[in-house]
Every structure is written in C-alpha cells, then in structure tokens.
Write a protein that binds this DNA or RNA. Structure first.
Length: 286
DNA sequence: AGCCAGGGTCTGC
DNA sequence: GCAGACCATGGC
C-alpha cells in the first residue's frame, strides 16, 4: 500500500481542468511512478510525495514542509485558470481535438536544475530510457530519503564527477553534457535563478552556452522548470505535427500559451499518431 | 534486424 | 546559413 492509513494528507477540493494521471504521464516529467491503487509517487525536492485524485479532489501525502500546500499548488500549477486558456486555444480545430483527448494536463513547475539536467539526458532518447537513466543517476549520486527514494543530485555533487563515474548510468554521449552543465551551475557561470527575470531570448542564450544544450533543451527547461508558458519546444513529434497540421504556422492567439498548447499537442500525436497520417505528408514511419 | 528516440555538435559547402 | 555525419544505448 502506497499510503499509510493514518497519514495526514493535504487536499485540494474542487480542482478544475486538472487530471493527475494526464499531467504526470504526458512526457514532461520523468520521476513519477504509478502505484497499483491508482496513485502516483514521486519526489519533489527532498520530499517523497504520493498523490491521488478522486473526482475533483486531489490529495497529497508525505509532504512535511511548513509551506507544503503552497509548494504543491505551485508545482502542479493549481491556481491558473486553464479553462480560460483552453477556451482560447480551442478556437483552433487541431488544438480543440488535442484538448479533448487530454483536457486535464497542467504544465508542472519543476526544479530548475533537475529540469535542465533531465532534458539534457532526453536528447535523441526515448522516454522509457530517459526515466531509467535518471533513476540510476538519483540512486547513484542523490541524497537518500527513504526506501527506494532519492533526491535528484545537486549540480555541486555532479560537478566533481568524470565521464567514467557516469558510465554505469549508460547515458552515452550525454555524460559530458551533464558534467558541463553541472560545473557551470556549481561555479556560478550559469545562475539558474536569473532566468526567471530574463527575457526569453537572454534566458535561452544563457542556457545554450552549456555544451549540449541547444534550442529544444533550452525551451523544455524554461517551460517545465521556469513556467515560461510562451516557450514552444519542438522535438521530432512536434515538428511532425506542425508540418502536417500547421503548415502556415501557429495562430497568433496561441502564442502567449504556446507551451501549454504544445503539451496538449505532443501528448495527443504521440498517443494517436494516426492523426498525422495526412496524404499530403506521408509519415516516414511506415 | 534495423529503425527510432522530447537533439546537439562539428565539419564542409 | 544549411546539410550530413556522428554520437551511445536500448525500446520496440
């Protein structure tokens, strides 16, 4: 059983436009695991959290911090009016379909360093394997919390390592990228907290000084780690979707929420790839 | 068995 | 500026 019966939880009643499962399995995070009872367990910062949704109520167990409620609300972006945003995006038929498929996706606000490091690992990789590498990274170099749960290793910790130290993780050519990012963060060449206040162009530029961070990883970091909702990361799936479904580009009214729109679209085309089977753009994959 | 994956860098035009 | 080779590894 994932949750002790006597453990006190934090409950958000009457959440709207939110689905825990959709949010945690749509490909924006890599450390939440489903339990047999329908709940999910993951680590936020230094705390092991188990979350469960019953209708419009979401309960979180395991949070010990004083400001846990606030922290959880921020992490899951529970205050934002997604209904209003979905209404705007739904003016477009494609986004309306994507939203209908998974209307409960929220953009998480994850730890910046964890997000940067995780999306470096994500490059030219598949989600299953990304999760395995990150598990091994945390188990090898993250602070132990309890049971099988570990913190994400700090940049300072990783900055001391060599590619040989990372070899058992099987992260391949990405090892040197992880180390460059860790060293830049540890020695102050890259100050992640600055990126909250920077313009998008400056923030991107700073991230892309890291060996191994290009446009896409920078945008994923800013979207999922800094809540920069106007970022529109383009991986292979989104590029395919844009080519097939938005040959003229995105509608203007989407741009302020392009990141949210992107996540609905990403999940939709990955789960329903047949929507990309357009006679004008025959997909390469059979 | 062979193509693909939430890409980026480097080289050569 | 752009195309193509190359990078590690394993999921499917």
């Amino acid at each position: 059983m994932a949750v002790g019966l006597k453990e006190k939880g934090i409950t958000f009643y009457d959440v709207k436009d939110f689905n825990l499962e959709q949010t945690l399995t749509c490909g924006q995070c890599f450390r939440w695991k489903p339990n047999a009872d329908g709940s999910f367990t993951g680590v936020i910062g230094t705390e092991v959290i188990t979350a469960v949704q019953i209708g419009n109520a979401v309960m979180f167990y395991g949070a010990k911090a004083e400001n846990a409620r606030e922290m959880l609300s921020e992490y899951f972006d529970l205050e934002r009016d997604y209904g209003a945003i979905k209404k705007i995006l739904s003016q477009n038929d494609v986004f309306r379909e994507a939203i209908t498929y998974a209307p409960g996706i929220h953009i998480l606000k994850q730890d910046p360093w964890e997000t940067v490091c995780s999306f470096i690992i994500s490059q030219n990789n598949n989600i299953k394997r990304i999760m395995g590498i990150i598990d091994r990274l945390c188990e090898s170099y993250g602070q132990h919390i309890e049971g099988e749960h570990y913190c994400f290793p700090t940049a300072q910790t990783l900055s001391w390592l060599t590619v040989e130290n990372l070899q058992p993780l099987k992260c391949g050519f990405r090892a040197k990228y992880i180390l460059d990012a860790a060293r830049r963060v540890a020695n102050g060449q890259l100050i992640l907290n600055e990126l909250y206040d920077d313009t998008l162009d400056i923030a991107r530029e700073k991230l892309m000084k890291v060996y191994g961070i290009g446009n896409k990883v920078a945008d994923c970091s800013l979207l999922f780690g800094f809540n920069r909702l106007e970022c529109f990361p383009q991986d292979v799936w989104i590029k395919r979707a844009v080519a097939a479904l938005f040959p003229q580009g995105l509608p203007e009214y989407v741009l302020p929420y392009a990141g949210i729109a992107q996540q609905y679209l990403f999940h939709y085309v990955r789960m329903q790839p047949q929507v990309l089977e357009d006679s004008a753009n025959p997909p390469k994959t059979k």
